[in-house]
């Protein structure tokens, strides 16, 4: 039998670690983060900084050699009566929408959470109530434009019931246009509140209600002292977010009234859009956008502070 000389060397327990390994280890998390950071930089931070920069120039994009004009664009925007009208309209549209979203959302959520309603009925109502949320803004705008048309179904019903003798120009009359777009926005947005508040209601411990009942609390007292405090964190978060979203609403207004008739539904968003894409005054539009950004940041500050307080 042939024998072989085998040399067995002890395996070193100490690994030879490359000198760059600690650096690589430190950099690894940043490498993983870098796609997100780059996207945030390219799509958010840089455009925001550019828009802020544009707002201080005489006119960018259409002017090849824009010059610095300081706060002139801000003065122009703030002294424009249409901007003030748009601010007032946005305030009305936002506050009424948010209040109505909350009331309707809470009401429907409580209805769907009530033991008095059967399961089949609940399921049916869930589908019906959530429908508006499933439509895109374009569909909602077309749908309501048709329904609110002077020859549309709403006027047909009103005329049939004898409530009016001729079709009302809901979206075309200065008296009703702002109310009409606000109503459409309320219809389109209450479902989100309803779903979220329903989830919140289902998380309220039954013990609290039982204890309140034992203490002799009426239905209203149970709602006021148990339900509302339990839902308060959700309500505050949702309301702040809704104020931010609604104040930035553009598509619905643009596709229903375009800001008219005669500026009665002009919002800050449509005002800024027209400055940029109708008058091509991109610097003035940037100033308007920066003002909206500042308003939104104030709201965002309260939202973040509330979230931190919750944590």
């Amino acid at each position: 039998m042939a024998s072989t000389n085998t040399v067995v060397r002890p395996v070193s327990t100490k690994r030879s670690t490359p000198r760059w390994a600690p650096t690589a280890r430190k950099l690894t998390p940043y490498a993983f983060l870098s796609p997100t950071v780059i996207v945030m930089l390219v799509l958010m931070l840089i455009p925001v900084i550019m828009v802020i920069g544009y707002s201080f120039m005489d006119n960018v994009i259409t002017n090849k050699f824009p010059v610095f004009v300081g706060l002139d664009n801000y003065v122009e925007v703030l002294s424009d009566p249409v901007f003030r009208t748009a601010t007032g309209n946005t305030l009305f549209f936002t506050l009424v929408s948010v209040a109505a979203h909350l009331l309707l959302g809470l009401g429907f959520a409580m209805l769907l959470n009530s033991p008095l309603v059967g399961n089949v009925t609940k399921a049916l109502f869930r589908v019906v109530y959530i429908l508006p949320w499933l439509f895109t803004v374009a569909i909602i705008a077309v749908l309501w434009r048709l329904m609110l048309n002077p020859n549309g179904v709403i006027n047909y019903i009103l005329i049939s019931l004898g409530l009016t003798d001729k079709g009302i120009e809901w979206l075309s009359s200065p008296d009703t246009a702002l109310l009409a777009v606000t109503f459409i926005n309320i219809w389109a947005g209450y479902s989100f509140y309803m779903v979220t508040l329903l989830a919140g209601l289902q998380g309220v411990p039954a013990d609290l209600y039982e204890a309140a009942r034992v203490d002799g609390a009426s239905a209203f007292q149970r709602f006021w002292n148990v339900t509302l405090p339990q839902l308060k964190p959700i309500i505050i978060s949702m309301s702040v977010l809704d104020i931010i979203w609604t104040s930035q609403q553009f598509a619905l207004i643009w596709m229903t009234t375009g800001g008219g008739p005669v500026n009665v539904t002009e919002m800050l968003s449509t005002y800024t859009y027209k400055l940029a894409f109708s008058r091509y005054e991109f610097s003035v539009a940037s100033a308007s956008a920066v003002l909206i950004l500042l308003l939104t940041m104030v709201l965002a500050f309260f939202y973040v502070r509330h979230q931190k307080a919750r944590d």
Binding site: A24, T28, F32, P35, I38
Partner: peptide, 17 residues
């Protein structure tokens, strides 16, 4: 594996840029 994932992450970032 760590080296590879670092490279993949860096490549993803580079691709984005």
């Amino acid at each position: 594996r760590r080296g590879l994932t670092t490279a993949v992450a860096a490549a993803a970032a580079l691709t984005l840029v």
